[in-house]
Every structure is written in structure tokens, then in C-alpha cells.
Design a protein around this nucleic acid. Structure first.
Length: 808
DNA sequence: CAGCAGGGGGCGG
DNA sequence: CGCCCCCTGCTGT
């Protein structure tokens, strides 16, 4: 039998500092100055010490045994270790740090232990403890209990403590009186008779409690080392096992991963009162004790299984220093146990869950039993503060639903999907092995947000949105609902910014070139179709194919009888930038990316919108699309158009010209509305859709802005002859007449109607010249200025330009 | 020739 | 519709 004499509970107050010696076996406490009594106590193997403690030091006496204690904490730890009280703090929300405490049903041993006299004793002790608690550090005062749920213990505004806690022992009903201490505002509203106590919104002193899943649980800014962590796990493991083996009707415990151990520093009177009145056993962790315990363990080269020994009723040190329970294996059986538990146990049986575990719990309200699927939080690598998600009430289900095969299936599915996470977690936590048998009775449902120590901030990259990563709440902030993991995409999309989503859609799928090649390969047959069922309007796609000599050929005839095309497109270079989306606008609109390489034999389409007018006989006036070159532009075509065997060079403003044979042409884009042309036909002239081979005035290769919208300008200015294709442009234009320029420079009198113009203007004051010449030191504030500069000073030779077309 | 202002089109939301 | 971008024209050096 090992004996641990541990120095514990260094209560630091503002007024005094008391040191206590705690027997690790019987939990008796001795003042430090009575160390001789403590030594004697240990020498007598605790036999004599009880009397010593009771008679000489004890302020509290256990109601079930003659053990005496100086402090309520000591008594509680005694209750914990000897009489098997348990309590788990459930950290159940992240951002705000709000936490939840769920207390298990008392054990049979605890039931026997709890009697009125004990509670009265404890109550008195709590009052005395408050004197110290009020003087503890702020973090000790941060423990908050709030709850608005019925049948739960509600302790509100506990910052200053609780007073006069009276306990009705047998029924465990609690009443509170707060009149004795003005600062005491905590109230115990109600405690259900089934000993279920649910204390929500517990805010623990976060500064004093950090989780380091990879290395253990850090308490009081003291991080446990690997050995300590393993010890904790061992304790937990055996504890789980004992729970399952010895207490078939006991509360079902889920994994205690990241459960909050109660320390002498973070425990407050509220916790104490809660514990006392719930009749539960709780794990107490005292820093000094932990250190000592671990030290002893290290000496013994054998971790101490406190819980195991406790369950064996051995007279062994019972300093349960941790319940940082590591979940290592979750199998379907464990999942199903959840439902089984809810099936077999009384509805009154509380299900204790862990914050990072999705779980099913049952509650009783007005005599009706309902079950809820709850999810907890995940603990980030940075500690509790990194928790992100609040406990999410996913759904409220009836018992039938809870026990339905569907739920079992969903939970199972969900659990399976997260097993990989668990493996990662296990590995990172340094866990070596744990048999699933040990947690066979442990309820662990859907560790949805299994801590991912390496989890990154959501990147939105759908490629990473796998089951084990996407719905990690650390990534997307969405707590996964058991059984809803299949809705993974929705989950992620809910948090990925739209722009980012679009970014990934456009940048991380197929490259533009891949898209182009695929599209080309899919369209080796010429196609000409109308996008509209109406006879007199639609869009025609002219399929063209580059010839071996770099020219283009139109290889199909138009299906529309009312539309004819030139028979030969040979020798004509076309920019591809006019392709609409419908026809496969695979070109990037970025500058310098207006060209495209077409493999030999590939076909691309040029969309042409048209609208036909009716003739006198009621038939549609044929629309003629012909190759048309203006005499003055012919040279431009030959000069600026580059059309080699395998590529086409896109030049700006290269498109179609709509007009009539009188030469009344207006610039149009590739996607050309022929409405105006149709209108012109009304006057009897032969209207044709003519292909404008003009490649722009300066032949700038970068001028490849695609034109998507029709060039018709229905929005005409009432004060001048200006017309625009969009209303917004007319609106901007009107500012010229009205003088309204809402965007004003703060440093000068400049004002403009366009925000972007002001943005450019401000560069004058800031001196910012983001556009830098790649050939010299020249820099400018406007891109167009740089272009002019390049053109004037670094103009590439025509041959070079031909040899190096811009490639998308 | 550089710098700047402004018009107008494209495109996403 | 707002924003951005491209382009053009004007002006000063």
C-alpha cells in the first residue's frame, strides 16, 4: 500500500497564509505547525490521526466518519476520495468563456454519506470558507453560476460568494438565504430531487486553467508534464472503467476530456456549495498536491491510479489530482451506449457530458421528459480562451427520437467520421495506448469538435474540407451536429466568405488553361445555335477553327435560315476576348491575358446576339453577317493581328461592327446586340452584321477588355447628347451637370463622383506610386501612365511581340 | 513627356 | 448599384 503524504492547499489570502498538511490516505488535514501530529498520523497509518484531527484541529467533521478537517475543501476532498463524490465541470462554450457544470448523480455511497448533520456542518464550513474566499484572488471570484433552467441549481451572481447554505439532507433540496452577507447574492433556486444539478454558465478563472492537450492539463499556470499527463489519463481511464463496471445504474459519464479539475484556487464557495448540495464526488486538484503526487509517482516509476484504488476501497492516497480524461478510442459500441444509457436508465439520470463532445441528455420539464442533442466546444491549442463555439442546442428530441435507430446511425456515422481526428489527437496528446475496453461504458458521442491542435484558421479551402477537418469548429466555427455531418458543405460555406468561396471556385479548381483545353476538346464539332426560341432574336455562336496558317475558318452553316454568315473566314484574326460566358468565356479579364493559345483543330465560338425585323410580307428580314473590312482598317488588321498556327492574339477593340452598307457603323463587341442594326433595316436599307476587323487604335496587346454588355446606349442624358449603356454611368455622368461630387479630398479641394478616382487622386498627396516600370526606375500613380511610359520608352519590337504573345 | 482628371465599360453583389 | 479598371484628353514642364 502506498502512502502519499502530500502537502496541500496552500491557501493564500490577503490576510494570512495558511499551510496545511493533508494525508493522502484519509485526507485528514493538519496545520503546518502541527506537522508532528501529521507525522504521527502517518506513522500510525491514519489510525490515531483521526482522533488527533478531530480533537485538535478539525473544524469540520465528516458526517459519515469521524474524520475531521480544517477546511471545507479538505472535507470535500475527503468526501470525494472516501465517499465517492463526483463532479465534473463542463466547459461548454468558448468565446465568452462561459462554462457549464454538470454534476453527476450521487453514488450510493454518497447517498449513505449525506445526511443532514453533514450538510449543516458543511454549510457552516462554507460560511467560514467564505471569509477566505472573498479574499482570494480575483480568479477565484470569477466563478459564476447562472442558470435559467428549471430543475437545476441556479447560482447567480456569485462573485462575492454564497451564504447560509442550508441543506435539506435527505431530499437534497437546497434553500438559500443571502441575508447574512450583503455581498452574497448567489442563490440556489432549485435542485431536483433526483440530484441532477446542472449549473450552467460557469465561468472559471481562465487564467488559471489552460488546457494543453498535447502535453496535459495545465493548472494554475503550471503545466503538467508528460508523466503527469499520463498519470491523469491513467486515473481517468481506470475511473471510467470503474464507473462502468461497478455502477451499472450510476450516472453515465462521458469522456472527461478537458474537464475542469477543481483546484484549491479556482474552487469557490459556490462550487463547494454546489458540490455539497448535490451530493457528488468531485475531483480535487491542488497544485501542490499534484506536484507532490506526481513526484511520488515518478519515484515509484508507477503512476498512481487514484480512482482505481478508490474503487477498490484501498487505503491509498486519494488525491485525485486530475480528471483530464483523454479519449482515445471511440467505437460504435461506445456510441451506442449513449442511446442505450438513455434507454435503460431512468429519465432522471443525468448524463454527464464533456464540452467537446456532442451528447444526448435528458431533461424533465413539467413531468415531461425530453432529450437534447448537445454539442460542446473544442479546446484550442491556446487554451480555453480559444474556444469558439457556444454550446449548441442542436435539436430537441423526444425519447423515442433519441432512442431511434436513426439517431444511433447518425451518431455512429458521425463518430466514425471523427475517429481520424481522435487518432490525431491521441497522437499529439502523447497518448500511448488505451484499450477501448476501459471506456466501454463510457458514453462518448460524436466528438464533433475533437481538438485539433494543428487546426488552422479556416482557410475556406474546400480541398481541405474533409470530414475530419472542415467541420472542426475551430475552423469554421460551426459545431457539428451529430448525424448532420453529411451536410458538410453547407457547414463550411456558412463561414467561408463569399469572395473567398468564389476565389476557390475560380482559382483552385481547374486552371483557366485547363478549362480552355477541356472546352476546346469538347467542342470539336462546330456549333451554331440560338439561345432564344424566338425567331426574331437570339444569340448565334459562330464556331471558328484556326487553320494551319493561323487563319480562321468558319466550318459550319448557320442553322437559322434568317441568318447567314460569310462563307469564308479565312485570313481573319479574331480576338477571343469577346466570348460571353455562355459560349465559354475562358479568358481572364486581367490585363495582358487577352490572348489564348488554340491548338490546331480546336474550335471556339463567337457569340452574336441578333434581333431580326419583319419585312412587309411578314417574314423575318434576313440578317446577313459578312466579313467586312473598312479600307482604312485593312492595314491595321494585317499589322496588328497575329494569328499563327497555334495561337491567336487577342487585341483590344477587335470585334464586330454592326451597321449597314452605308458605312454607318457603330462599334460593337463580339457579343453584339444587333438591335440597332435591325432598327436601321426599318428604313429599307440592307442591314448586315459586319465583322469589324479593327484591332484598336494603338494595337495594345493588353487592351483586351471583354465586352459583356450590349453597346447600345439606352440611357441618354437629358442635358447633352451623351448616352450610356448602364444607368449607373448616366448617373455618374449627370454629376457633370449637377456638379455633385460626393467624394472629396481631405487635403485639397478636389472632389469627384467616383470613389476610385479619389483613391487615385490621394496618391498625389501620399506620393504612392504603385505602378513601377520593370525596365527602369520609373513609377507612377496610375496604371495608364505606366503603360504610356512603357510604350514610349520600352516598346518591344513588333517581332518580339509576335513571338511572345500573352498567354492565358 | 509626365501627371492628372474624368468618362465610360465590365463585373460582382 | 458600387467599385474597379481602362482609356483618353488636358495641362504643365
Amino acid at each position: 500500500m502506498r502512502v502519499h503524504a502530500a502537502l496541500s492547499l496552500q491557501r493564500v489570502t490577503m490576510e494570512e497564509e495558511e499551510d496545511y498538511l493533508t494525508c493522502g490516505k484519509c485526507m485528514s488535514e493538519f496545520r503546518l505547525e502541527r506537522i508532528t501530529s501529521f507525522i504521527k498520523h502517518k506513522q500510525q497509518d491514519c489510525q490515531e490521526s483521526m482522533d488527533t484531527a478531530v480533537t485538535s484541529n478539525a473544524e469540520l467533521v465528516c458526517g459519515s466518519c469521524p474524520q475531521g478537517f480544517m477546511t471545507a475543501v479538505g472535507l470535500l476532498r475527503h468526501a470525494q476520495t472516501i465517499h465517492k463524490f463526483k463532479l465534473f465541470l463542463q466547459r461548454s462554450s468558448g468565446i465568452t468563456g462561459i462554462q457549464k457544470v454538470t454534476v453527476s448523480q450521487e453514488t450510493e455511497a454518497a447517498k449513505r454519506m449525506i445526511d443532514q448533520s453533514m450538510f449543516q456542518t458543511i454549510s457552516q464550513s462554507l460560511d467560514r470558507s467564505l471569509e477566505r474566499d472573498d479574499q482570494l484572488e480575483n480568479r477565484s471570484r470569477e466563478i459564476l453560476f447562472t442558470s435559467n433552467q428549471p430543475h437545476v441549481m441556479d447560482l447567480q451572481q456569485p462573485a462575492k460568494g454564497i451564504s447560509n447554505l442550508n441543506v435539506a439532507s435527505n431530499q437534497h433540496q437546497i434553500q438559500t438565504e443571502s441575508q447574512s452577507r450583503p455581498s452574497s447574492s448567489a442563490m440556489v433556486k432549485h435542485v431536483s430531487t433526483n440530484n441532477e444539478m446542472n449549473m450552467s454558465n460557469l465561468r472559471l478563472p481562465l487564467s488559471n486553467l489552460q488546457t494543453n492537450p498535447g502535453q496535459g492539463l495545465s493548472l494554475g499556470n503550471k503545466q503538467l508534464n508528460k508523466t503527469q499527463y499520463d498519470t491523469q489519463k491513467d486515473i481517468t481511464k481506470s475511473d471510467i472503467s470503474s464507473q462502468g463496471n461497478s455502477q451499472t445504474s450510476s450516472p453515465v459519464f462521458t469522456s472527461e476530456n478537458h474537464a475542469t479539475a477543481i483546484t484549491s484556487e479556482n474552487i469557490s464557495s459556490h462550487v463547494l456549495s454546489a458540490i455539497m448540495n448535490s451530493g457528488v464526488i468531485f475531483p480535487v486538484l491542488t497544485k501542490e498536491v499534484t506536484s507532490q503526487t506526481v513526484s511520488d509517482n515518478q519515484v515509484n516509476q508507477q503512476p498512481y491510479h487514484a480512482a482505481e484504488n478508490m474503487n477498490k476501497q484501498e487505503n491509498s492516497p486519494a488525491l485525485i489530482d486530475v480528471h483530464h480524461r483523454q479519449i482515445n478510442q471511440i467505437d460504435q459500441s461506445s456510441v451506442r451506449n449513449v442511446v442505450t444509457a438513455n434507454q435503460t436508465n431512468s429519465p432522471k439520470t443525468p448524463v454527464i457530458k464533456q464540452p467537446d463532445i456532442s451528447y444526448v441528455t435528458t431533461t424533465q420539464t413539467n413531468g415531461q421528459t425530453s432529450s437534447q442533442v448537445l454539442t460542446g466546444v473544442e479546446i484550442g491549442s491556446q487554451g480555453i480562451e480559444s474556444q469558439q463555439a457556444s454550446p449548441v442546442l442542436v435539436s430537441t428530441m423526444t425519447d423515442e427520437q433519441v432512442t431511434s435507430p436513426k439517431l444511433v446511425e447518425d451518431v455512429t456515422k458521425h463518430t466514425e467520421s471523427n475517429n481520424q481526428d481522435l487518432e490525431v489527437y491521441k497522437e499529439m496528446a502523447g497518448n500511448t495506448s488505451q484499450s477501448s475496453d476501459n471506456i466501454e461504458q463510457d458514453i462518448q458521442i460524436s466528438p464533433s469538435s475533437t481538438p485539433n491542435m494543428n487546426s488552422n484558421v479556416s482557410t475556406g479551402d474546400t480541398s481541405e474540407n474533409t470530414n475530419n477537418g472542415c467541420c472542426d469548429s475551430q475552423k469554421c466555427g460551426v459545431t457539428v451536429i451529430p448525424g448532420s455531418h453529411e451536410d458538410l458543405k453547407k457547414c463550411c460555406n456558412a463561414v467561408v466568405p463569399k469572395k473567398r468561396k468564389r476565389h476557390f471556385e475560380t482559382k483552385h479548381t481547374l486552371s483557366m488553361r485547363q478549362k480552355l483545353m477541356r472546352r476546346l476538346s469538347d467542342s470539336n464539332t462546330l456549333r451554331t445555335y440560338r439561345s432564344s426560341d424566338k425567331k426574331n432574336r437570339g444569340t448565334i455562336f459562330i464556331d471558328l477553327e484556326p487553320n494551319e496558317d493561323g487563319t480562321l475558318s468558319q466550318k459550319s452553316t448557320v442553322g437559322n435560315d434568317n441568318v447567314s454568315f460569310p462563307a469564308d473566314f479565312s485570313g481573319i484574326g479574331y480576338e477571343v476576348s469577346g466570348l460571353s460566358r455562355d459560349s465559354g468565356s475562358f479568358l481572364n479579364r486581367s490585363k495582358g491575358k487577352g490572348s489564348v493559345i488554340l491548338p490546331a483543330g480546336a474550335v471556339f465560338s463567337i457569340p452574336l446576339s441578333y434581333s431580326l425585323s419583319t419585312q412587309n410580307d411578314g417574314s423575318l428580314r434576313p440578317l446577313i453577317i459578312s466579313k467586312h473590312t473598312f479600307p482604312t482598317e485593312a492595314s491595321t488588321v494585317s499589322q496588328n493581328t497575329t494569328c499563327t498556327t497555334n495561337h491567336l492574339t487577342a487585341n483590344s477593340s477587335n470585334g464586330f461592327r454592326v451597321g449597314n452598307e452605308n458605312g454607318q457603323a457603330r462599334n460593337s463587341a463580339m457579343d453584339t446586340s444587333v438591335n440597332s442594326a435591325a432598327e436601321n433595316m426599318e428604313d429599307g436599307t440592307d442591314s448586315r452584321l459586319e465583322i469589324d476587323l479593327n484591332h484598336g487604335e494603338d494595337g495594345d496587346l493588353n487592351q483586351s477588355r471583354k465586352r459583356r454588355y450590349p453597346t447600345s446606349r439606352p440611357f441618354k442624358c437629358e442635358k447633352c447628347d451623351s448616352a450610356f449603356n448602364q444607368r449607373i454611368h448616366l448617373k455618374k455622368h449627370m454629376s457633370k451637370h449637377t456638379g455633385v461630387k460626393p467624394f472629396k479630398c481631405q487635403q485639397c479641394s478636389y472632389s469627384t463622383v467616383e470613389r476610385s478616382h479619389l483613391k487615385v487622386h490621394i496618391r498625389i498627396h501620399t506620393g504612392e506610386k504603385p505602378f513601377k516600370c520593370t525596365y527602369c526606375e520609373y513609377a507612377t500613380a496610375q496604371n495608364s501612365t505606366l503603360k504610356i511610359h512603357l510604350k514610349r520608352h520600352h516598346k518591344p519590337s513588333p517581332s518580339a511581340a509576335n513571338k511572345s504573345p500573352t498567354i492565358v
